[in-house]
């Protein structure tokens, strides 16, 4: 039934604010004594809020590959987290049809005190997999991550390369219809990228909708058909990849083949 359903992402006038609880403002004292002296309203208005996203709207259909670009703090990660349902919006709507996988955090909530195998089982249970499916997942992840006997040791004993491999293998083992990806997943070293590339590409190809946030413009250029330029939480431009990226860079794009760097194949 799921396969018949078309994937879709709809975002309408999405706004997300981050309350910044100053070490003082966060404390109970402020609120209690604020009430006593009748300054609650003033306090509430004085609350420092970071406007992470402002009035963002767009809709994606199957086949869409959206790249999010913009400087640091433009709201790219917040937008991905909102799409993943982690941050609930204060204003506007987010609608996602289809199964979703968000590759946001290299650790994906891994518990470093547990063994690699236990973390894989937890991940499988989270995805609602059955026992045999979890065994499949274990095999797949351990084959890719090449952890050998380390799979039964706590993740905190892993070298950083090993835990990146484990996190990546787990995150990419389950293929969704809607794939959200933060730039971290493209930030491995050259050797790792070589190994990860085909796995990532087949996952991206398998997804109906991709939303990718990246600083690496050649990745966006190669993988995305559409680009959303975020600037201080607002949509600065939204349109065909080349057009928006030229506006963002302020000069014409080089042909994809001429770009150095990650060597990611165009899809």
């Amino acid at each position: 039934m799921r396969s018949l359903q078309d994937a879709a992402v709809e975002v309408e006038h999405l706004s997300v604010d981050f309350p910044l609880y100053h070490s003082n403002a966060r404390s109970l004292k402020r609120v209690v004594f604020g009430t006593v002296t009748g300054r609650v309203a003033a306090d509430a208005r004085q609350r420092v809020v970071v406007q992470a996203l402002r009035d963002v709207s767009f809709a994606l259909r199957p086949g869409d590959r959206l790249g999010l670009i913009g400087g640091n703090g433009a709201g790219k990660t917040t937008l991905l987290r909102s799409l993943a349902g982690i941050y609930e919006p204060q204003a506007g709507n987010v609608r996602i049809h289809g199964s979703l996988n968000a590759l946001l955090d290299p650790n994906q909530g891994m518990n470093i005190d547990l063994t690699g195998r236990e973390n894989i089982v937890l991940r499988g249970l989270y995805e609602g997999l059955s026992r045999p499916e979890i065994r499949c997942l274990e095999e797949d992840v351990s084959a890719f991550a090449e952890l050998g006997e380390f799979l039964d040791l706590p993740v905190r004993m892993y070298s950083s390369g090993m835990s990146v491999r484990l996190g990546f293998a787990m995150a990419t083992a389950i293929r969704p219809q809607v794939l959200l990806m933060d730039e971290w997943f493209l930030a491995g070293d050259a050797v790792f990228m070589e190994k990860a590339r085909s796995r990532l590409e087949s996952m991206v190809r398998g997804a109906d909708i991709l939303v990718l946030s990246s600083h690496v413009l050649e990745v966006v250029q190669n993988w995305c058909t559409r680009v959303l330029w975020l600037d201080q939480g607002r949509v600065r431009a939204d349109g065909p990849a080349a057009e928006v990226m030229e506006a963002y860079l302020g000069h014409p794009l080089l042909p994809a083949g001429a770009l150095p760097g990650k060597g990611l194949e165009p899809l």
């Binding site: 709507n93 987010v94 609602g128 499916e133 797949d140 083992a173 389950i174």
Partner: peptide, 20 residues
Amino acid sequence: MTTSLATGPRQANFLELSPD
């Protein structure tokens, strides 16, 4: 090549978030 695992059945087929 990646795994033969299909999409995880748990994930919401429909997720709607609104601040109502």
